[in-house]
Each structure stands twice: as structure tokens, then as C-alpha cells.
């Protein structure tokens, strides 16, 4: 029992949609306390990989293991245990638009943990403060916020239950570089301060280098490269090199 099991592990995952194979024997693991970033081209199955772990989709073959035990999906007990231990930031923030900002952040506390609304509100305001949002937004509805603020609210909702494992699906996509940078730093800070494990998806090399301990590159339904972020530039795989060079930003202006 001295060997540490990874906190989360994808084993031989296969997933097809209609005739199209998206994941073709995906193997991937995350060690507790590390921040893993999954990268890859559009449509390579990054979101699907996340959704499989979250029991929002079923794999055709293979298992996702949480603390060494296979997740059953949906309403299974072990899946519920993962939900209890995790916070998720969805790509579009996925805030409940019928609820106010603080009710969104406090959703788990009120509806799953049975906390009183008053206590939940206090906790929600605290979480909003952690993502640097003024308490004046607490009583607004999500539709009254900008995209960047919605992402922050999503982030606050993800961290409010003191999760051990955080999932971020493209936390900075669609944001201006300044806001993106702020969100990245926030994520790094939160992961460090809460001591969480983090699994993130991003297209953005700058984001990845900021928030990752490890990077996994997804291509053709498999992980083609995985390693610590400092080794990324030494990677020989063509996909990785293309990814690095194409997202290096515009070349410096001549003259």
C-alpha cells in the first residue's frame, strides 16, 4: 500500500459518436496535488475526456478510476463521491440563469448539503471575494454580467465546497488577454492555496504554461505526449512541435 495510486485515471477509453471514433484507447492519469493540462486540436475529444470522468457521458470501453476505483457514471455512489470532492468550471460557465449570482455560487451548499440560506450566502460571498468579485454583484443575475465576470462566478461556484479536485474546460477561451491572464493567475493561486488537484483543458499555450505542472497532448484519440511542462519544448512529437510553433503568437515585427 506504499505505491501511490493516481487520484484520477483514464484506462483504455474508447468512445465513438455514430461512425466517428473520438477516443481510441486513451490512457491518462493525474497524481494528487498536480495540475494537469490537456491540450489538443479542436474536436480531438478533450471535452469528451472530461465529461467521461464526470459521468456525463458513457465510454464504449475502458474505465475512469477515481482513487483507484472505477466510476460508475450517473447516480452511482462512487460517481457521487467524485462530485462531492470536485468543482467544475464549464466552458460557457453554465451558470443557472434563473438564480442570482450568490445563489449560483451557493447552489451546492443549499441544495445538496442542506445548509441554511443565510450560512450559504456568507460562504458564497467569501468565495466571490476569493475570485476578486465585489459583493455588490451577489444579487445580480448572470445575464447582467460580462463574460469574464461570469467565468469568475463559475470559478467561485467550483471552489465553494472546498473541493480536492478541480476541472476547468477552457477557462480563458473567448476572453481578452488581460482577463485571461487574470483568470490564469487566479487558477494558479487557488490551486496552490487550496492544495487541489486540477485538470484543465485549453487551446492556449500561454495559459497552459501558466497553470500546468504537467501537460498531456491529445491527438487521434490518444495521448501522444505527456510530461512536465518544462520538458514540453524538448518533445520530438510532430503534433506537439506544431502546436508550440503555431501558438507562439505573431512573429516579432520587422525593423
Amino acid at each position: 500500500m506504499t505505491v501511490t495510486t493516481p487520484i484520477l485515471e483514464w484506462r483504455g477509453i474508447r468512445k465513438r459518436f455514430g461512425g466517428k471514433t473520438v477516443l481510441n484507447g486513451l490512457d491518462l492519469e493525474v497524481d494528487a496535488g498536480r495540475s494537469l493540462v490537456i491540450m489538443g486540436g479542436s474536436g480531438q475529444g478533450k471535452s469528451v475526456t472530461l465529461k467521461l470522468a464526470l459521468g456525463l457521458m458513457r465510454a464504449d470501453a475502458g474505465d475512469v478510476l477515481f482513487e483507484g476505483k472505477a466510476l460508475s457514471g450517473g447516480l452511482g455512489r462512487h460517481q457521487q463521491k467524485l462530485y462531492r470532492a470536485s468543482g467544475v468550471l464549464f466552458q460557457g460557465a453554465a451558470l443557472f440563469d434563473s438564480l442570482t449570482v450568490w445563489e449560483n455560487v451557493a447552489f451546492r451548499l443549499i441544495n445538496a448539503d442542506g445548509r441554511s440560506r443565510r450560512a450559504a450566502r456568507v460562504a458564497a460571498l467569501e468565495a466571490l471575494d476569493q475570485v476578486r468579485l465585489e459583493s455588490s454583484v451577489a444579487d445580480l443575475h448572470p445575464s447582467e454580467l460580462s463574460g469574464g465576470m461570469q467565468k469568475r462566478v463559475g470559478l467561485a461556484r467550483a471552489i465553494v465546497g472546498r473541493p480536492r479536485i478541480l476541472f476547468f474546460d477552457e477557462p480563458t477561451t473567448g476572453l481578452d488577454p488581460m482577463t485571461a491572464e487574470a483568470i490564469n493567475l487566479l487558477i494558479v493561486d487557488l490551486v496552490k492555496r487550496l492544495g487541489c488537484t486540477a485538470v484543465s483543458i485549453t487551446h492556449d499555450m500561454v495559459s497552459a504554461r501558466t497553470i500546468a505542472d504537467d501537460i498531456a497532448m491529445l491527438d487521434q484519440g490518444k495521448v501522444v505526449w505527456k510530461g512536465p511542462v518544462k520538458d514540453l519544448d524538448q518533445a520530438r512529437e510532430g503534433v506537439v512541435q506544431r502546436f508550440i510553433s503555431s501558438s507562439a503568437g505573431p512573429p516579432p515585427a520587422a525593423g
Partner: peptide, 25 residues
Amino acid sequence: AEIGAMRATEQIDAMRTLSTDPFRY
């Protein structure tokens, strides 16, 4: 329309990850 929009914007998925059963809620 209400529930369909929640489905389309992943609010139902989000609800499940927040340990709340959409069928009950």
C-alpha cells in the same frame, strides 16, 4: 424551452456535478 435551454448551455450537467439530481430539482 426553460429546461431545453438549460440542457443546451450545460446547466443540467453543471447541476449534476453540484451533487443535485435534476430530476428532483
